[in-house]
Design a protein around this nucleic acid. Structure first.
Lengths: 183, 183
DNA sequence: GTCCGCATGTAAGTAGTTACATGATTCA
DNA sequence: TGAATCATGTAACTACTTACATGCGGAC
């Protein structure tokens, strides 16, 4: 999703500063489907302000730069709904680098294969831990159902990697018979 | 994966023209983890040629533009392996637009929710059909194992959507009690 | 007779990322 | 003393995407 819509999405839940929006992308429920650094968030908020989709109030702080608390406007909410109705959700290609790398397992060192698989398993585990922690929106709520999707998909992916870890490693370049190395 | 590496990947399997590389991104086994249009493929091939990672031979054709058949060089193969060893495969965030949309199911019309879910189920089904067709690389081969990953993940995602389709639809904006509409 | 497949490429535009710039506070 | 958190923002760069430009042949 584009950065402006992602910001509107966070602000639809509660007012926030640019800094807090970024935290939401990293830690909150949005971390599973949105991202963006300061370099894109701040310009996005400027544009949204110019378009009247958000407003902000400055909260003075003594020992830090003043904090701008952004709030979504009615026009902003309407725009968010519009975007979510118009946009064709064409992504989700699992066009993952991991699969690209594993496709060439036979040409790569076993250590590399082991590392990418183990790192990914750890990544899935961390995601699953995070998903089980950040419940609390209520059974059957949209956030809860979306969370369930994440759990289902990450679990399936993790199990597959665990089950086939050894198969991939066996394929790796340095496991091929000596005939090959002596070539 | 960046476009240059993706092209090298296709060429590592067989020589091909720019046009054929694009077909590989759309239809072949690469369609599950690589993509790119002509606007990125042709410039990438020029750069790769300049770097000595690929060479090409011109195959004259009478009634069409001459075809350039690109072939990977030894340096190209080495570079591919290097890239696949260096690059941190950090993607796979399931940062999908679908989940973003479903997260806001309560604010959107039921028709929209129904459509995105049904479209996505059809998409998964098409992917699964395609994956089962394009077997043939041999049991336990890298392409086969990668294919298995795709089947596992797509199946899990599809089942989840099928099982929770009604739950999402029930949450939708126009299913809320009249009290809300009369507000 | 119009759209699709084959076949190559360029130019302009978009949407981001990365690095820079600044600076106090708090924790190890 | 050095890193992490809080806090905002700009400028340069990268890497694609989209639209344009050209043109024949065959299928429907």
């Amino acid at each position: 999703m584009d950065i402006k819509t992602s910001c509107l999405g966070v602000l639809a839940l509660r007012p926030a500063s640019g800094y807090e929006i970024r935290k939401a992308f990293e830690e909150g429920p949005f971390s599973h489907f949105a991202e963006g650094g300061f370099g894109s968030i701040y310009p996005a908020l400027s544009k949204l302000t110019g378009e009247g989709l958000v407003t902000f109030e400055v909260e003075a702080q003594e020992k830090r730069p003043d904090k701008k608390i952004y709030q979504i406007t009615d026009a902003g909410r309407a725009t968010l709904v519009e975007k979510l109705c118009e946009k064709a959700p064409d992504d989700d290609k699992y066009k993952s680098d991991l699969l690209f790398i594993l496709f060439f397992a036979g040409q790569l060192p076993a250590d590399r294969i082991r590392n990418v698989i183990d790192d990914r398993i750890a990544f899935y585990q961390a995601k699953l831990d995070h998903l089980s922690e950040c419940g609390g929106a209520g059974e059957g709520s949209a956030p809860d159902l979306v969370r369930g999707f994440g759990v289902t998909v990450y679990s399936a992916a993790m199990s597959y990697l665990q089950d086939h870890r050894q198969d991939f490693i066996k394929l790796a370049d340095d496991n091929r018979p000596a005939a090959d190395a002596a070539d």
